[in-house]
Amino acid sequence: MHRFSIIIVSWNALHHLQEFLPSVAKTHYDNYEIILANNASSDGSVEWVERQFPEVEIATFDKNYGYCGGNNRAVPYANGDILLFLNNDVAVEQDWLQGLNDTFDEDKKIAAVQPKMLSYENPEYFEYAGAAGGYLDKYGYPFCKGRIFDTLETDLGQYDSPSDILWGSGAALAIRKEVFEEMGGFDEDFEFHMEEIDLCWRIWNEGLKVRYCPKSVVYHLGGGSMPMGSPRKVYYNYRNNLRMIWKNASSGTLPYRFPIRYKLDIIAAFRSLFTGNIEEFKAIARAHKDFWKYFHRTQQKRNKLLESRKISTNPETMLSINLIWDYFLRGKRHFNELIDETHGNSHI
Score class of each variant (00 low, 15 high):
92 V>H: 00
28 H>Q: 15
43 D>V: 08
220 H>P: 06
238 Y>L: 14
165 I>H: 05
261 R>V: 01
202 R>F: 00
211 R>E: 06
1 M>F: 00
335 F>P: 01
189 D>W: 05
156 L>C: 10
99 G>P: 01
42 S>Y: 03
111 A>D: 01
81 D>H: 07
143 F>I: 11
23 S>I: 04
257 R>G: 08
191 E>L: 04
159 Y>T: 07
166 L>N: 13
111 A>V: 00
151 T>N: 14
46 V>A: 05
206 E>T: 03
165 I>W: 06
253 T>V: 10
309 R>S: 04
128 Y>H: 14
157 G>T: 04
266 I>A: 15
28 H>P: 02
294 Y>V: 12
84 L>Q: 08
15 H>P: 12
41 S>W: 10
304 K>E: 15
332 K>F: 02
239 R>K: 15
276 G>S: 03
309 R>Y: 02
155 D>T: 07
60 T>Q: 12
220 H>Y: 03
243 R>H: 09
161 S>F: 05
87 N>Y: 03
97 L>S: 05
127 E>R: 04
175 I>Y: 01
263 K>W: 12
345 N>H: 13
79 N>A: 10
322 N>E: 11
188 E>R: 03
198 D>I: 08
317 T>D: 09
339 I>D: 10
165 I>Q: 12
323 L>H: 10
35 I>D: 13
249 A>R: 11
71 N>L: 15
339 I>A: 15
240 N>V: 11
202 R>A: 10
255 P>L: 02
288 H>Y: 01
275 T>M: 06
15 H>K: 01
231 P>T: 05
159 Y>F: 15
238 Y>G: 13
286 R>V: 00
7 I>E: 02
90 V>N: 02
315 P>Q: 07
214 P>C: 07
321 I>L: 08
105 D>F: 04
339 I>H: 03
223 G>R: 08
56 V>Q: 03
